[in-house]
C-alpha cells in the first residue's frame, strides 16, 4: 500500500507549484470521492459511532494534503481500512475532502 501511495505522490509532486484548483482536479474525482468517503469513512467517523465525527471541513486543505501525502494513516486505528483502498480511491477521496476543506471555496459537511 505504501508503495502505491508513493507512486501517487510522485505523480502529485510534479504539480506542486500549480494552483490549488488544478491540484484538486488532479487528485481525482471528488464526486466518486464523496461516495467512497461515505462508504469507507463515515460509517465510523460520525456522531454516535466509534470514531470522532469527520467532515471535509474538519481540516484545512493543507492538513488533508499532509494526511494523505505523509501516509499518516499508518498510525491510525483504521489503517487496515486504508490499505483496502486503491490508489484511485485515495485520489478520489482526497479530491473530495480537499475540495470542501475548512479553507476551500466551498467548505462543507458530508451530508
Amino acid at each position: 500500500m505504501f508503495k502505491r501511495i508513493a507512486i501517487v505522490l510522485l505523480g502529485l509532486g510534479l504539480i506542486v507549484t500549480m494552483t490549488a484548483a488544478v491540484m484538486a482536479a488532479d487528485m481525482g474525482n471528488e464526486r466518486k470521492g464523496k461516495f467512497l468517503f461515505r462508504k469507507n469513512c463515515r460509517a465510523c467517523h460520525q456522531d454516535g459511532q466509534s470514531a470522532p465525527a469527520l467532515n471535509p471541513d474538519s481540516k484545512t486543505q493543507a492538513q488533508w494534503e499532509r494526511i494523505f501525502e505523509k501516509n499518516k494513516y499508518e498510525d491510525f486505528e483504521c489503517s487496515a481500512e486504508w490499505t483496502k483502498l486503491s490508489e484511485d480511491d485515495l485520489k478520489d477521496i482526497l479530491a473530495y475532502v480537499h475540495g470542501h476543506a475548512f479553507d476551500s471555496p466551498s467548505p462543507a459537511k458530508c451530508k
Binding site: T19, A20, A21, D57, T60, Q61, F102, D103, P105, P107
Partner: peptide, 18 residues
Amino acid sequence: YRTKSKKIELHNVRYKEM
C-alpha cells in the same frame, strides 16, 4: 478564518492563483 490565509482576506490569495 475559513480562508486560505486564515485571516480576513482583503487581498484574495486564491483569486490571485486563479
